[in-house]
């Protein structure tokens, strides 16, 4: 398996001088589903933003298939940010057209199918829809690309449990076996069955990278229980 993402001594300090990500070395490979887990302020979103080229590292580097973040990396990474960026004035169908226009690898048929399965009206304006429904639409758009890496920052937090199951099934069935998914969430027990590996972050550092079944075998605990133990306050 080749490295999709390579972080080398990656560091990001904000203006207050406290490092959000500190001297991080991390490799993300093809064909895996990763859970990026850690308490609030452990550096998860900072790391994701550097991978997506939205933040510039203070030191070190992040390479996507050997290149720095840029036009090429955006073609292969499909990113769901923690906050929605869709214009509330638009209709659902406008957003599909927008994504189709913007990304070569966007598959509108896939998006329509998921919207229909979740009972979302394609002519509705986003501002008339609930927060959870808007989150579902955003996720559907992101998952309808043929990307090599999907980075999902809190994809299920605002979504009801039944739709969560649907979304999780969608993630499993839709992604190409060569692609990787990185899911950042606090709802560990909802997603741990679909993960290959988990990455625990603490104070900007990777404190654990292991397979889910390895943790269950060694610790005799679910990842959720193990997380509560490692990060007990």
């Amino acid at each position: 398996m080749s490295a999709l993402i390579e972080c080398r001594n990656l560091t990001k300090c904000y203006q207050n001088g406290v490092p959000a990500v500190l001297d991080m070395n991390l490799t993300i490979e093809s064909g895996h589903i990763y859970g990026l887990l850690g308490p609030n302020g452990s550096g998860k979103t900072t790391l994701i933003k550097m991978i997506n080229g939205l933040l510039i590292p203070t030191a070190g580097e992040v390479l996507i298939e050997g290149n720095k973040p840029g036009v090429e990396s955006r073609k292969i990474i499909s990113y769901l940010p923690e906050r929605t960026y869709l214009d509330a004035q638009n209709k659902v169908s406008d957003m599909i057209a927008f994504f189709e226009d913007f990304y070569e690898d966007f598959k509108p048929d896939r998006a329509w199918e998921m919207l229909e399965n979740l009972g979302i009206n394609r002519e509705a304006r986003l501002k008339t829809l609930s927060k959870g429904t808007r989150e579902k639409i955003q996720l559907i758009l992101v998952m309808s690309r043929e990307a090599k890496l999907f980075i999902l920052d809190e994809p299920i937090a605002g979504v009801d449990p039944a739709a969560r199951d649907y979304i999780i099934r969608t993630i499993i069935t839709n992604y190409n076996p060569e692609a990787s998914v990185m899911i950042c969430t606090h709802l560990i027990s909802d997603i741990e069955n679909i993960l290959d590996d988990v990455i625990f972050l603490k104070q900007g550092k990777v404190v654990l990278k292991a397979q889910v079944d390895e943790i269950r075998e060694k610790a005799g605990k679910t990842v959720d229980q193990y997380f509560r133990e490692v990060f007990a306050c």
Binding site: G31, I33, R169, I172, T173, N193, I194, L195, D196, V212
Partner: peptide, 11 residues
């Protein structure tokens, strides 16, 4: 089977 069980296909 993976979709039915809600698990990763690799598992």
């Amino acid at each position: 089977l993976a979709a039915e069980a809600g698990v990763n296909p690799n598992t």
